[in-house]
Amino acid sequence: MTFETELRDRLHAGVDQTEIDLGALLDGSVAYGTRVVRRRRLFRIFAGAATVAVLGGVFAHAGSLNGPPDDGIPASTSTTALQEAITPQAALKILLETLPTAGQKGDFTGWPEGIGTQDGLSASLGYTDGGSTATVTISLLNHRFPPECVAGADLNCRIDTLANGSKLQLVENQSSGSSGNYKHLQANLYRKDGLVITLLSENREEYNPGTSPSRPPLSLAQLKAVVISPRWQRQVNPALVDGATGLFTPRPLTQPSSPAAKGSK
């Protein structure tokens, strides 16, 4: 008899009379099997979620590569539950981020547009570049009126139709009055979705009649680049609204004058 055969026989003889708790053994086997099935199921769930996240990133990247039309303006806009109405402070924050960074900026303010009922908003700042300072005001208006170049009133004015059907008006004016003589540059975008975006740059430096005013700190081309930005929307990311809250306190909405009491003279 070999050593292996003898060892096997002795092991069998030692355990032949041992009692086995089959109930405990069965319960343990079932519990182990349940854990294995649960782990496999969770693995499939997490793997599926990871796949969805990766594909979502791929599609988002593909969408960013497609980009907006040539003029930089979305053909249409949509509102989701994750967005909030733009505020004067949020409009100013976008303006700060879209203006040329070389200039100095300050004197922040803003207000809701309209009398009694809000019909848009405006935000304003002081912008200095090349020794010249202007008050720069962005306005987002919900009403639509056709752009027009007024002969005799506008020094230089042109209206172009962009690729998506929106109309862009560029105006250059000089004004004179009791407070002085000033240079005005303005870009007005009349979008197909009904939103009217205006950006006005008014030189703060007076000039003498018959002389040329100082060079505006912003050109018409720079104003155009700001108003055609796709960032101007009625609804924006809540993080933008929250992050801009501390820039200034908006002026209140203008209220209509109270009607005169009956019989008053």
Rank of each mutant, 00 (worst) to 15 (best):
L26A: 13
T77F: 07
A90K: 08
V58M: 03
D9K: 00
R44L: 11
P100H: 05
T98A: 10
L25N: 04
E19D: 07
R10M: 04
L11E: 12
T101M: 01
F3H: 02
T79A: 15
A90N: 08
G28D: 10
L22I: 01
V52K: 04
L42F: 08
G72L: 14
P74H: 03
R38W: 02
L25I: 13
G67H: 01
R38H: 02
P74F: 03
R38G: 05
T18K: 00
Q104E: 04
V58E: 11
T2I: 14
L11N: 00
A24S: 12
R8V: 11
F46E: 05
V36I: 03
V15C: 02
G28A: 06
Q104P: 06
G33F: 00
V52E: 09
A91G: 15
G72T: 15
K93N: 11
A13R: 04
A90C: 10
R38V: 02
A24E: 14
E97S: 06
E6D: 15
E97N: 15
L7I: 11
I86D: 06
V54M: 10
H12N: 10
L7D: 13
K105Q: 14
G33V: 05
Q83S: 11
Q17S: 15
G67P: 03
E97K: 03
P69N: 10
R38S: 09
